[in-house]
């Protein structure tokens, strides 16, 4: 019984700590509901003296004892002055967050395993300035910024992602210890933010896939080196080898000759191309193919169970394909 108790004691403490923490999180969830744009105010700012602040108070206590023992009036005055400063610092630190507007926008898209780029926007309205405000997401670095002359700051935070699908980072921690570093004001914000994470690309044999396509007879023109295709205005940076010298010699200006290659297929990326793999692996492979084909500028279509994307290319098409892969199989409402 005693042994059990001895073993149980630390875990009980842990449990208490965990219970307290979860209670706190629950309380925060209710107190600061998710919103896209949050204005910091007394409703959502917490403030407490930090370790340095306790040190400051300790020094004040020592000074106070000195003042009592030596009966020095000015020492009393100094101690009281610093107590005043301490009290003021609470307000100053609070003020260094209050009134700040925060929102987040997604940065460029990411693949699972990469760090999601999240741009946190801090805005100030009115005259009040903010200094040394730090923001971080769980797992990201802490970034600090000032809003003195500027009224808006954008900070890019990188948060590690693991799974494909919609990714919501934890609560944003906004904190400051400015001006004296003896009080810490902070807030935990849910900026109702999510960003799409594409599947983690995995290498596969693209040539094999290409050679196994059904021939459809359509012809796509891809910029290449095979056949002369036409002329266009010379742009800076064009290779001099491709300048239409004959036309230039006629004095009609500089033109660039365009060549083209013909690939007589539209490529279909299909779910059943990798019959032996599980869902995630398949998605990863498909994702890799999509990236490669997009980079090569080849038309491709995507076929998943319950989803079909006609062969095409371009940024929009690329994103549609990746989005389909990212959200495949996830409940429709997940994170939506």
């Amino acid at each position: 019984m005693q042994i059990a108790a001895a073993v149980a004691r630390p875990s009980f403490k842990d449990m208490l700590l965990r219970a307290w923490r979860s209670r706190f999180i629950f309380w925060v969830e209710r107190r600061i509901p998710p919103a896209r744009n949050i204005v910091l105010s007394h409703r959502n700012i917490f403030i407490i003296p930090n370790k340095q602040g306790l040190g400051f108070l300790l020094v004040l206590a020592l000074m106070f004892i000195g003042a009592i023992n030596y009966e020095i009036s000015l020492a009393f005055a100094l101690v009281f002055l610093l107590i005043g400063v301490f009290v003021l610092t609470i307000f100053y630190t609070f003020r260094n967050l209050a009134g700040l507007h925060l929102s987040a926008v997604p940065g460029s898209s990411v693949f699972a395993g990469e760090k999601a780029e999240i741009i946190v926007i801090l805005n100030r309205h009115g005259e009040r300035c903010y200094e040394s405000v730090q923001v971080s997401f769980p797992g990201s670095r802490k970034l600090s910024c000032d809003l003195l002359e500027a009224t808006e700051q954008r900070l890019t935070l990188y948060v590690p992602t693991e799974k494909r699908g919609y990714f919501a980072p934890g609560r944003l921690v906004v904190e400051t210890v400015f001006p004296l570093g003896i009080c810490r004001a902070w807030s935990l914000l849910d900026l109702d933010f999510r960003t799409l994470v594409y599947p983690r690309p995995e290498d596969c044999d693209l040539d094999w896939i290409l050679s196994n396509q059904h021939h459809t007879g359509n012809t796509t023109i891809v910029r290449g080196n095979d056949d002369f295709h036409g002329l266009r205005d010379y742009r800076e940076g064009d290779s001099l080898k491709h300048v239409a010298w004959k036309i230039l010699a006629r004095g009609q200006g500089m033109y660039t000759k365009e060549y083209s290659s013909n690939i007589d297929e539209k490529i279909w990326l299909r779910w059943d191309m990798f019959p032996t793999l599980d869902t995630e692996k398949r998605l990863s492979r498909l994702c890799w193919c999509v990236i490669k084909l997009d980079a090569a500028g080849i038309d491709y279509g995507l076929e998943l169970p319950g989803f079909r994307l006609q062969p095409a290319k371009g940024q929009v098409h690329y994103q549609q394909a990746l989005q389909a892969l990212a959200l495949f199989g996830l409940p429709a409402g997940a994170g939506a």
Binding site: A77, F80, L81, L82, I83, G84, V85, V87, L88, T89, Y92, P179, L180
Partner: peptide, 10 residues
């Protein structure tokens, strides 16, 4: 300013 403002409290 901070010190001046804490003068009344002092």
């Amino acid at each position: 300013i901070m010190l001046a403002q804490s003068v009344p409290l002092m």
